[in-house]
Design a protein around this nucleic acid. Structure first.
Length: 411
DNA sequence: GAAAGCGTCCCCGGATATCG
DNA sequence: CGATATCCGGGGACGCTTTC
C-alpha cells in the first residue's frame, strides 16, 4: 500500500527474517518491483551501531539480493537463523537496519549503539504480500498505534557481538528471587561457533523465575550427567540431592536426579539426564534454559535452544520416546535388526546379534559339546535358535523367523 | 567454577547350560 | 522340547579427580 511517497521513498519499511545462510539476503519482491530499477549496484546498509556497510547487489531472475558485503554485515551483528531485521529504505540506495530481533522475538540490543527506540517504530496498516516476509509501512500513522511504549516495557536484551568483548566461560545473570531479572547462570561455556550460536539465543532467554542456562557439551551427550551451575544450586538449593522434574513446553516430563556436591563445588544432573537428552535429541551446541518452577517439589521448565547449524540433519525420531536404561538397549537392538536384514543367513545363525562395531566378530554360538563349529549352521541348530529366541522378542529371532518362513516358502 | 575424564560398581539382557 | 537357571558382556550411573 503505497501512497505518493512511492515515487520518493523516504521511510519505507520492510522486514526480513534470516531463513538461510547469511551469505546474501533477498529483498522483498514487491520492493524490487517498485524500486529495483532505482537501486545502484552497490547500496549502503547502516545500523544503529557500527560503520556503514557497502553491499553489492546481485540481480537475478527479477530478484535482487544483498550479496557481497552482506556477510560481513551479518557476521558483525552475529545474525543467524530466525533473526528478524527491520529495514528502512531511505532512498538513494541507502538502507537503515534499525531493529534486530532474536529467535525469541526479543529485540537484540547491541552495546555502545544508539538506543533503537530513539527511532520510533510506527506500526502502520500492514499489507501482507503473500508469503513474503515484508510489510510496507506508510508514513501517516495514527499516534495511537505507536508501539514505542509497549516495546520499551519489554525486557531489554543485550547480546555479545563478534569482535566485542571476549566471551567469558560463564556468565552470572541469574534471575533473583523477587523476580527482578538479573540474568541466567550458565553452565557449559562452550566457545565454538556452534555453541555461541544457540548460546547466544539462550542468553536472550528471560524469565521472572530463577533460571540457569546449560550449553550442551560433548560430555553431556557421551557421559550421563550434565553440570548445573554450582552458584545457582548454592543459592536455591538447601539439599544435597533430590529427584526433580523437568517439564518441556509440550507438557512432557522427565524425572531426573540432581545432586549438589558441596565438597567439590559442583552440581550435576545424573540419573534421568540421558533419557532427557535422547528424548530431546540434544546435541553439542544446543542450549537449555531451566526455570525453577516451584519448591519444595523441585521442577524445572525447560526451553531448548537449538543450534541452527545442526538443524538440517537433526532427526525427530526420538522425539516423544521415553528411553530409560533398558529401553535404550532395545533401541540399539532395533538398529541391530536393520543390520541383520542385510546379513547373510549364515551370519545370522553363526553370530549373536550383539556386536561392538563392524570390525569385531560377534560372539559365536557354542554347540552343546562346547565347540565352535560350522555345524552350528545346520538346520537343527537354526531351528532351535528360532524356537528359543522368539519368546524373547529379539531382533535376531525375528530375522531367523523370517528365514524359516522363506525356507518353507522356497524349499 | 566448570568441563571432562577416569575408575568402579551395578544392572540389564542375551547366550548358554541344565533340568524335567 | 520347553522352561528355567546361570553366566557373561556391555553400558549406565556415580563419585571423584584433573585440567583449564
Amino acid at each position: 500500500m503505497f501512497t505518493s511517497s512511492m515515487n520518493h521513498p523516504k521511510t519505507l519499511h520492510f522486514f526480513r527474517i534470516i531463513l538461510s545462510q547469511t551469505q546474501k539476503l533477498p529483498l522483498p519482491k514487491r520492493f524490487v518491483s517498485l524500486y529495483g530499477d532505482d537501486l545502484s549496484n552497490t547500496v549502503i546498509v547502516k545500523a544503529p551501531t557500527g560503520p556503514e556497510w557497502k553491499v553489492e547487489l546481485m540481480k537475478c531472475d527479477g530478484e535482487i539480493w544483498l550479496a557481497n558485503g552482506w556477510k560481513d554485515f551479518a557476521d558483525y551483528f552475529s545474525l543467524k537463523y530466525g533473526n528478524l531485521l527491520i529495514f528502512r529504505y531511505e532512498g538513494h540506495s541507502r538502507f537503515y537496519v534499525f531493529m534486530i530481533f532474536d529467535q525469541t522475538t526479543f529485540e537484540i540490543e547491541y552495546p555502545n549503539g544508539i538506543d533503537n527506540h530513539d527511532v520510533e517504530l510506527q506500526i502502520p496498516d500492514v499489507e501482507e504480500v503473500g508469503s513474503e516476509d515484508v510489510v510496507e509501512i506508510v508514513n501517516n500513522v495514527s499516534p495511537s498505534r505507536k508501539t514505542t511504549e509497549k516495546t520499551r516495557s519489554s525486557p531489554r536484551r543485550r547480546t555479545r557481538m563478534q569482535g566485542a568483548t571476549n566471551a567469558k566461560k560463564s556468565e552470572f545473570r541469574m534471575s533473583s528471587r523477587d523476580g527482578s531479572k538479573i540474568g541466567p547462570e550458565q553452565a557449559g561455556g562452550g566457545t565454538s561457533a556452534a555453541q555461541r550460536s544457540s548460546a547466544s539465543s539462550a542468553n536472550h532467554f528471560g524469565s521472572e523465575k530463577p533460571f540457569f542456562v546449560v550449553n550442551i557439551q560433548p560430555s553431556y551427550i557421551t557421559a550421563f550427567h550434565a553440570n548445573v551451575p554450582f552458584t545457582f544450586a548454592r543459592t536455591y538449593f538447601t539439599w544435597k540431592e533430590a529427584n526433580v522434574i523437568l517439564k518441556d513446553r509440550d507438557g512432557r516430563t522427565w524425572p531426573i536426579h540432581l545432586k549438589v556436591y558441596n565438597k567439590y563445588h559442583c552440581t550435576s544432573f545424573g540419573r534421568g539426564w540421558k533419557a532427557f537428552a535422547i528424548d530431546n535429541d540434544l546435541r553439542v551446541g544446543d542450549s537449555c534454559a531451566f526455570e525453577l518452577l516451584e519448591r519444595p517439589e523441585i521442577s524445572f521448565r525447560v526451553t531448548i535452544f537449538r543450534n541452527p547449524e545442526d538443524s538440517n540433519d537433526r532427526h525427530t525420531s526420538t522425539r516423544g520416546s521415553k528411553i530409560g536404561h533398558g529401553r535404550h538397549k532395545r533401541e540399539l537392538n532395533a538398529r541391530s535388526q536393520i543390520e541383520y536384514d542385510h546379513s547373510s543367513e549364515d551370519e545370522m545363525i553363526r553370530y549373536s546379534k550383539r556386536n561392538k562395531g563392524s570390525q569385531v566378530p560377534r560372539r559365536k554360538i557354542k554347540t552343546r559339546d562346547g565347540k565352535f563349529d560350522e555345524a552350528m549352521q545346520n538346520k537343527t541348530s537354526a531351528r532351535r535358535a528360532i524356537q528359543r529366541l522368539p519368546s524373547k522378542g529379539t531382533a535376531i529371532a525375528r530375522a531367523l523367523e523370517r528365514v524359516s518362513k522363506l525356507r518353507s516358502a522356497h524349499p
